[in-house]
Design a protein around this nucleic acid. Sequence first.
DNA 1: AAAATGTATGTAAACGTTTACGGAACTTTT
DNA 2: AAAAGTTCCGTAAACGTTTACATACATTTT
Lengths: 335, 335
Amino acid sequence: MPQVSIKDIARMLNISVATVSRALHDRYDVKPETKQKVLELAEQLNYRPSSHAIGLLKKRTHTIGLVVPEIDNQFFSEIINGLENVAYQQGYNVMIFQSQNIYEREVKIIDQLIGARVDGVAISIGSSTQDFKHLNMLKDLDIPLAMFDRANDQVYGHKIINDNFEGGYKAGEFLIKSGRQRIAHIAGPSTLKLTRLRMQGFKAALRDAQMELRPEYLVHTTFRMEDSHQTALDLLNLPEPPDAIFAVSDYVALGVLKAARELDLKIPRDLALIGFTNLAVGPLLEPPLTTISQQSYEMGQETARILLENIESPEKDFKLQTRIFKPELVIRSSV
Amino acid sequence: MPQVSIKDIARMLNISVATVSRALHDRYDVKPETKQKVLELAEQLNYRPSSHAIGLLKKRTHTIGLVVPEIDNQFFSEIINGLENVAYQQGYNVMIFQSQNIYEREVKIIDQLIGARVDGVAISIGSSTQDFKHLNMLKDLDIPLAMFDRANDQVYGHKIINDNFEGGYKAGEFLIKSGRQRIAHIAGPSTLKLTRLRMQGFKAALRDAQMELRPEYLVHTTFRMEDSHQTALDLLNLPEPPDAIFAVSDYVALGVLKAARELDLKIPRDLALIGFTNLAVGPLLEPPLTTISQQSYEMGQETARILLENIESPEKDFKLQTRIFKPELVIRSSV
DNA sequence: AAAATGTATGTAAACGTTTACGGAACTTTT
DNA sequence: AAAAGTTCCGTAAACGTTTACATACATTTT
């Protein structure tokens, strides 16, 4: 049998839908006997209220939309966990979507979230997104927006990000202190702000140590392993290869690791390597990966907190928040 | 300004909602001029149709609910990707939820999915779930159900699983062939069928080789790293420790790897190790992990295909399908 | 005995959208 | 000039739920 509605129950018991609704909500003004009958029948017929009907009737859906570039990435899945846990505790559901870094998908997802009348949106902007109309539209519609990890200044929304400049600086500084001379950086997609900041921090560290960065030691890649692996191979096959690499993320560092192994380079003897993110597999690699940690779970929690505070605030012009997490050096054995 | 509806547009243009609706759907029977005006205003006001209203009106929501134990697990996130891609291609959306292996959460999620009137449900059952009423309820409500990876015979639904017995057998066989004598197995939670099957396959391999399995060489753990790590330590600290371990999953193998490193055991010299899943990090570990591969992405695709076929089939009693994937031995260097 | 209060229920509108049906104002055909 | 057809648009019902308001009866208070 198909799904039953409150109407079906009313018809079967020969009472009005209003009474059924009241009984199901355990209101004071319904006879215990009637209440009993309603609850029993509802249970027996597996009645579940239609979230569409309720969403239509009430202003609030108690749902927040979450958009990540990709889900099969530890960093993002940990953020999801942090965000979900806080949201659940406050009685909110989370709808998760992945943009796959494809601009058109991102736009479509936002349209969908608006259509679903979510109470708020949390997003980590995809790397191919250059136009932010779809995100700024949310402001016009009074839907609070929080950007985590990948934020953009042209977008009106809260920001929960890392101090990427400082992270880049710390990485560069540590490689310099460890005595390396030919330090390279594999940066991320140049469209992303975090790419630029980590790079700038890294460059600043070199500058402060009066070291120069050779142009051929600065290369870009995507976060996909095949790309970073190839990029690393190219870098290590230079006539004068680097003796240290700062990878824009641990995923990219994995590509370097693979390349180094193929070229029979010993880490850290022949090549020092430092990543960024602090993935859970880091300590299990050989050698355990030195990296800059991002507190992904906490970032997810904080994103949820800020977003929910905005959603539940009665004030029309809730102030935009920016929360900056301090990256920390995690010393293991790859440097 | 808040979200606009078709009614708002109708009022502003002094026409009926029916005409607006027709214009937005590009129907033949509306004057081009009117159509033009409607489309322009809709665009300007960022109109997006309410999925709640549509969901309420139509029988179908073109949405499928996806429930995984945890999202921060490569295996599941790859399944999600496979499933989502097939679903999107056929015009379906996917709502992702995680049960965290908590029974109560799983029940709540199913309730929610019923409330959201999804067209179908795909689930990998949580390890603490012993009662399956919530899942069998779906059949009563005519909502197709597909179980992937973790299925249960007491539940009415399609199954997309691995031949776990064969996988276990292959793992055992390979360790035996490699000349190991004291072979141990770290099994998963005993509630899961896949745990039992992999164990049985493993035992069968030993039996076929006339080898006996010492009771202390068979231990259980969860898929959480801290647990498997401790379990591995206990196992390796036995008076007579094993010289080979078959871990029920790559995640568990990571725990073993960590323990072995702490005890200064060289793999594969002192200890042979084989996992199950074939995670993407496997080849990057030291040593690269030998494992039994599960085709996660393909399993996700197949789950979507079977579920969608069921959803779109006009027949009331669509036949239950079972798709069994053959696990394959992936030889690297840990054995 | 009339008035006031309490208890249990029903009526109806609203949320946003689609669509079958009907009809007015044309244009074309006889 | 009547009949038939075309073009464009409006009316209203339906989906499932909540809730303000009304109502009917019973009980208590004056």
